[in-house]
């Protein structure tokens, strides 16, 4: 009796909390985005600036997913299938981007790659520029999402051990075949989940990118930066419209992620 009463209260509080903290803001974004009609919405997301920002955001997110998936696979392989000195330190270093604030991460990159940074002269000599330019945005996005894929697949690979790979090697499979037929199928859902996590985090990245971009319109503005600009300029309808695009992409990724998580869990239980 009492138990079901407690249960009801907890459910009620949970729903209330979700409604106020999540559903209300989410709906309000979509509501305000379409407040002035579909025409205004389309106009505010189809102007040159918005499209450029969307493009850059997608490129940055794509780069982050690709770079960190590749890195995640290699690093997990290294950490779990081999033993070497400084393994602990290596694994700890990978986590640094998650530990420091994105704004600080942005500053760190400026000190490293900026004009007066340590690598500045080298970049000058090569005639390229990273900070306040698109490469900087990509690097910042990759940096803040660096450990996400690794963190998803490394523990899985750890528990799976190396015996299956060894067994395949004993039968004469080369490393590419081993990866394709043994390792990859065993981690694919976790890998997908990690990539999706990486993608949603990359889409929403603000801090590090904000420090590094220099806010050059139509050049180094990502969606999040663009939303901030619109908001500061009191173009609320447009800000909401652009935000709603981000929200929709994120929701889509969330759904994919949930599917992947479910599949990965089913896989792990085997």
């Amino acid at each position: 009796m009492e138990k079901s009463f407690v249960k009801k209260i907890l459910i009620f509080l949970g729903i209330l909390f979700l409604a106020i903290m999540l559903v209300l803001p989410l709906v309000s974004v979509l509501f305000h985005a379409f407040e002035n009609g579909i025409k205004v919405f389309i106009k505010s997301i189809s102007n040159e600036e918005a499209l450029k920002a969307l493009q850059l955001t997608l490129i940055a997110a794509g780069a982050a997913v690709i770079a960190n998936t590749v890195f995640g696979i290699f690093a997990s392989f290294l950490i779990t299938k081999f033993s070497f000195r400084f393994k602990k330190i290596f694994s700890l270093l990978i986590d640094v981007p998650l530990a420091v604030s994105p704004v600080v991460a942005g500053l760190m990159l400026i000190f490293a790659f900026g004009k007066r940074g340590w690598l500045g002269p080298v970049l000058d000599y090569l005639g390229t520029k990273i900070i306040f330019d698109i490469p900087g945005i990509l690097i910042a996005t990759i940096f803040v999402t660096f450990p996400l894929v690794f963190r998803e697949i490394a523990p899985l690979m750890q528990t799976q051990g190396t015996e299956e790979e060894e067994a395949a090697a004993m039968m004469g499979a080369n490393w590419f075949c081993i990866f394709r037929k043994i390792t990859f199928p065993n981690i694919k859902w976790a890998l997908f989940y990690g990539s999706a996590l990486c993608a949603s985090r990359a889409l929403g990245e603000f801090g590090a990118v904000s420090v590094i971009s220099g806010h050059l319109r139509e050049k180094t503005n990502t969606m999040t930066l663009y939303v901030e600009i619109l908001f500061n300029e009191f173009e609320l309808a447009s800000a909401f419209a652009v935000s709603s695009i981000l929200v929709m992409i994120s929701l889509m990724i969330l759904i994919l992620r949930t599917i992947a998580e479910y599949k990965a869990k089913k896989w792990e239980d085997k």
Binding site: G161, E163, E164, M170, G172, N186
Partner: peptide, 28 residues
């Protein structure tokens, strides 16, 4: 290892978990 003509049975069997019994045996 693969040139030595050896069959190896691992302690925890190391069966390929995503493959069927048939596929496991057929792998080599």
């Amino acid at each position: 290892p693969n040139r030595r003509g050896i069959g190896f049975v691992f302690q925890n069997y190391a069966l390929f978990r995503h493959m069927t019994v048939f596929e496991n045996i057929a792998f080599g």
